[in-house]
Amino acid sequence: MLRRRIRLAVQSTAIAVSFVFLFAVVAFAQTDRRQNAPGQFDFYVLSLSWSPSYCEAARERSPDRAPDQQCAGRPYSFVVHGLWPQYEKGFPSYCQVPAPRLNRNIVGSALEMMPSPRLVFHEWDRHGTCSGLSPNAYFEAMRKARAVVKIPEDYLALAKPITVNPGQVVDAFLEANPGLTRSNIAVGCDRKRLTEVRVCLTREFGFRDCGEITRRACRLNKVTMPAVRGGAANAAEP
């Protein structure tokens, strides 16, 4: 009797394990089959980071640490965080390991859009390798994507910190960019600051809907936008 119970228990366990395995296989089959295949994606997200928020958060985390290049050099407002290939659900990353190296000229050119070499390298390794493009072509695509999106004038040289509703920021981008709709853009935040704006683009750099991105937008009613360093002086220039 005892042996029979043990045998039945083993059989039940085996059946349960089989169901778990089958469920895992089905779940895997439902994920995007192009996972991490370079060049195989549906659209881009252009992520524009509000640099003053990054720098303020970095100071809070490490007040005694010397500021990095983004926070000690020229003043920045919205900067390109990255151009990210996306699936309709999820996204690829690190599609070539090790990634093809970037030469000095490519990095120098990218710094016109991005605030630090470290960010340039990171974005190429994680996202650029999934574009299916060469380094030159990827950063040229980033340049084209950035040229599509106009930053609202009020945010170019913000002279003092302001408190905004994320919807106000979306409205400002919609007004500055004819053809952009609420289903194409999402504002990101941490617990108190606006951190970034994400704009969804087709592979040909037209605005497009992206439900998964907009569903993850900031849900706070009010967030702070710290001032741009030297913003008052910049605003006073003709």
Rank of each mutant, 00 (worst) to 15 (best):
R3H: 12
L8Y: 11
A9M: 09
V10M: 13
Q11A: 09
I15R: 02
V17Q: 05
S18N: 02
F21I: 13
L22M: 15
R33F: 14
Q35M: 15
P38Y: 11
G39E: 11
Y44M: 09
V45A: 04
L46H: 03
L46W: 08
L48P: 00
S49Y: 08
W50L: 02
P52M: 10
Y54W: 14
Y54C: 02
A57I: 03
A57R: 07
A58G: 13
R61I: 13
R61N: 10
R61E: 10
P63Q: 09
P63M: 10
D68E: 12
Q69Y: 06
Q70D: 14
C71E: 00
C71N: 10
P75F: 09
Y76Q: 11
F78W: 12
V79L: 04
V80G: 00
L83F: 09
L83C: 06
W84N: 01
W84K: 05
P85H: 13
P85F: 01
P85K: 05
Y87M: 02
Y87K: 09
K89M: 10
G90L: 13
G90I: 04
G90F: 11
G90H: 06
F91H: 03
P92H: 04
S93F: 03
S93E: 12
S93Y: 15
Y94H: 15
C95S: 04
C95D: 00
V97I: 10
V97Y: 10
P98C: 08
P98G: 09
A99G: 06
L102T: 02
N105P: 03
I106C: 09
V107D: 11
G108W: 11
S109L: 02
S109W: 09
A110T: 00
E112M: 14
M114D: 01
S116E: 13
S116K: 06
L119M: 03
F121D: 03
E123L: 02
W124I: 10
D125Q: 14
D125G: 08
H127N: 09
G128R: 00
S134F: 09
F139M: 00
F139I: 02
E140C: 00
M142T: 08
R146K: 15
A147T: 06
K150F: 07
A157L: 01
A157S: 12
I162D: 00
N165H: 12
P166W: 01
V169L: 14
V169Q: 03
V169D: 05
V170W: 03
F173I: 03
A176F: 00
G179E: 07
A186M: 06
C189Y: 01
K192A: 13
L194V: 05
L194K: 00
T195H: 11
T195Y: 12
V197L: 06
L201R: 01
R203M: 14
R203V: 08
F207E: 03
F207L: 08
G211A: 13
R216Y: 08
N221Y: 07
K222C: 06
M225H: 06
A227W: 01
V228R: 05
R229A: 14
R229L: 04
A235K: 08
A236C: 11
E237D: 15
E237R: 15
